Computed example of a mutant assay.
Amino acid sequence: MFVGLTTVDIQYFIDDIPIANTKIKTGNPDILVGGPATNAAVAFAYLNKTATLASPAGLNAFSSFIDQDLNRVGVDHFDLAYGQEFETILATVLTSKNGDRTIVTHNPAEVKSTILPQKLIDLVEPQILLIDGFYPEFSMECVRICKERGIPVVADCGSWKSQFADLLYDVDIAICSADFMPPKCTNREELFDFMIAKKVQSVAISNGGAEIEYLSKNKKGIVKVAEVNVMDTLGAGDFLHGAFCYYFLENEDFESAMQKAAVLASFTCSFKGTRKWLNFDHNA
């Protein structure tokens, strides 16, 4: 089960990021559903044929679009804002020809969920939980319940959010971006120490196309990232997280799961947009 953010991404493909006070014309944008937890659920569904996402979408101009897009990729969506007016989180994405992207978006408002975490978890009976740090009140309760039931909890640590200070105490696995730096942490060693103090069992730090560094049960190591012809990096980190959850459930081997997930994440970068890769076998 994936708990967190759902956005509507409007992605333009351009040659270069424009300078100030210029107007550029390009082809039609991709308009697709995104967000850290949502993209992770999409990757899990690609491997597992289905996944469960809990995120607010609510009533707005994009409601049916979000439903249709998630249905198309096999994601079973529990709308935490069901029946409520809710402002869609939009993201404008500019992707240049070398695959780099610039994103303009906004933070979501907190939501009063129409389903209690306890009831949701009883209904879904998840084998693993991933949270992306958004909607902390709801996420914290999900994390606590799963921890009590012995269900592995994975945190997508993309950027530091104050709620991680408490959330991480009940997290088993943290997958961090290179930008994730808690207060008073200035390098990777300090980040590893921070996670150890929180009793996080396994920590990985991804860094784009560079190798992934990890510490798992006192064992340090690296996972090499395959070189591909990069067309677009949007969502790659999220797809890494979703694939990791799937492979970790196979045999609960952290290093093996991370290696396999890195292969899929690299594969997604060789396509423009966040959906075209779903039509291909990444093992072919």
Rank of each mutant, 00 (worst) to 15 (best):
A243L: 08
E227A: 03
W160C: 09
P182A: 08
N218L: 14
A165M: 02
K198N: 07
I222F: 11
D166L: 15
Y214I: 01
K161V: 11
V230D: 00
A155R: 04
C185A: 07
R188H: 00
A204K: 05
L249Y: 12
A226G: 01
G208L: 02
D172C: 07
F180K: 04
I173Y: 03
F244N: 03
S159F: 12
A243F: 09
V153M: 10
P182E: 06
K184P: 01
K184Q: 11
M195D: 00
C245V: 11
L215K: 13
G242H: 06
V230N: 03
V223S: 12
K224C: 02
D238R: 06
L249F: 06
C157E: 08
I196P: 01
A197K: 15
N229S: 08
L167E: 10
A226K: 14
D232F: 10
M181P: 03
G237Y: 01
V230E: 01
C245L: 11
F254C: 12
C176L: 04
E190Q: 15
E213G: 00
S206I: 00
S162M: 07
M181L: 04
S159A: 15
V153C: 13
I196Q: 15
H241K: 10
A257I: 05
E252G: 04
A178Y: 12
N187Q: 04
C245T: 15
K224E: 10
D179R: 08
A226I: 06
E250P: 05
I222G: 00
A178G: 05
L168S: 12
L249M: 12
H241F: 11
P152L: 09
V203W: 08
K220L: 10
I145Y: 11
C142D: 08
E189D: 04
E252S: 15
D232Y: 04
F194K: 09
A226V: 13
M181F: 02
V154P: 14
G208F: 05
I205C: 13
F244Y: 08
E250R: 07
A155H: 07
W160G: 05
C142E: 02
G235P: 14
P183E: 06
Y214D: 08
P183N: 05
E252N: 15
S256R: 12
G208S: 13
E227W: 03
E250G: 10
W160Q: 05
L249P: 11
F192G: 04
H241W: 14
G208T: 03
K199L: 10
N187I: 11
I175E: 02
E189R: 13
Y169G: 06
I145H: 03
A236P: 14
K147R: 10
H241N: 15
A155E: 08
E189M: 02
K219H: 11
F244K: 01
L191Q: 07
D156Y: 09
A178N: 11
L168N: 13
A178S: 11
A174L: 12
R149M: 15
F180C: 05
T233L: 04
I212P: 01
V171L: 14
T186G: 02
D166W: 02
I175A: 06
A210E: 15
S162F: 14
A243C: 02
G235W: 15
E250D: 01
D193R: 09
M258S: 01
E227P: 02
F254I: 09
